[in-house]
Computed example of a mutant assay.
Amino acid sequence: MVTLEFILDGPYTSACLHPIPHTISPYSHMMESCSDSTPVSPPFNDPDADLIIRTSDGVDFRVYKLIMKQASPVFREMFTFPRGSQLNNSVVEVAERSRVWDYILRMLYPVGRAPSAPDPADYWPLLEAAKKYDMAGVREAVKHAMMVPAVLKTDALMTYALACVYGLPDAARAAAKASFQPWPGDGRPPLCIPEMQCMAVMAYHRLSRYRWACVEAATACAESSDLFRSETRWNGKSNVIHWPEWITALQKSTKCGARCPPSRAHKDSGLRAYIDDYIDRSIKSLRVEPSGQVVATTDAIGPILKAANVCFDCSQKIGSDAIVRFANVYAQRIDAAVAMVTLEFRLDGP
């Protein structure tokens, strides 16, 4: 009895279904006004300021035209109109809320406290304002805030959606890789977030294809024999087989009994069968999250330690440090393989 949820989404715009008014030109919000408004803290309550920016929630920011002209080509153009013109008045009513303009102005002003990192809920209106008023500095600041690891860990999909709409390829690629953690590939799809309603279907499709390619690269690395490959070296008398150090520490001893069978997949390596089991489990984990960190966790390597303790010789010869070292090398190989996969990025905004 499963039914498809159907919603008429309408035409795509960069400000769809968001509390930013559809009219994005600041010119239409300019007018002389003497109405009451909410005061603000310094330095935006300067009585000598020659411009008031009045937000949609009724907050007045008293600023200087000179600063706004330097920060925004849009504001510079406003102030080129003849004195007395509607577009050269002392009050500019804008569509954004006060918390958005508080962040913008604290970035622009040479005095006062620097703005703290914006709340993720403000990324969208800040990026839209940066686009509307052509403020490259605000755009870059929001981009860097979105790429902080703590933000990517919890809001990767939101970051990816906004990066695709506002042309931020670095943020899109970082978010695409981070999106594997909060949304395992075989788990329940994430709830729809508002920002997804502005993301083009093709952007989401590219994210899905990128994840699939990363899974293919990670599992191909796991299934490859390169990790267990030996080298033939001349020792001055004859050719001898040389194994990497992380392999020799795990090789099967002649004293190991029937309870510790040799590797089935890598018979010439001298490894034990529980290494095969570890690789098989890791492949399943990599299909959920194609990242090296999933193969080096305590849960991942714990069964190897338990299996090694079953064999008396293994329990004496193999220490946990050898197993951890092997898992870390394995994880590095996987991450290197996944890093070779690139996300196709296109600007999907209008």
Rank of each mutant, 00 (worst) to 15 (best):
L271H: 05
A265L: 15
P261S: 05
R264L: 10
S269F: 07
R229L: 12
D226W: 12
R206H: 05
R233G: 01
D277Q: 12
C214P: 01
A176T: 13
T232Y: 01
R229I: 03
S224K: 09
T248I: 10
S253R: 10
S238Q: 12
A217F: 01
K177Q: 14
S263T: 06
G257V: 02
L227D: 06
A176S: 13
F228S: 01
R206V: 02
T248V: 11
A178V: 07
R211E: 05
A213H: 11
R173N: 12
C256G: 02
D268G: 11
P182K: 00
A220W: 07
P190W: 03
R206P: 00
S225K: 13
S253T: 15
A176C: 13
E231M: 07
E195Q: 08
A258D: 13
R206M: 03
A265K: 15
C221M: 07
Q251N: 05
G257H: 02
V240P: 03
N235D: 15
R206E: 02
S225D: 13
A222G: 07
S253Y: 08
H205V: 14
S225G: 11
L271S: 05
A218S: 04
A200P: 00
C256M: 06
M202S: 15
T248P: 03
R211A: 04
E216T: 09
E223G: 14
C192W: 09
P182S: 00
Y274I: 04
L191T: 12
W243F: 14
R209P: 03
F180C: 10
Y210P: 05
Q251M: 10
P244C: 00
T232E: 03
R229Q: 14
R188H: 10
W246C: 12
P262V: 03
I193P: 11
K237E: 08
H266G: 04
P262D: 00
A203I: 00
W183K: 02
G236Q: 04
H266C: 07
A178M: 07
A273G: 01
R259L: 15
P184S: 00
S179H: 09
H266L: 10
K252T: 03
L227S: 07
F228L: 11
R229D: 07
T232V: 11
T232N: 02
L207N: 01
S269R: 09
P261N: 08
S225T: 04
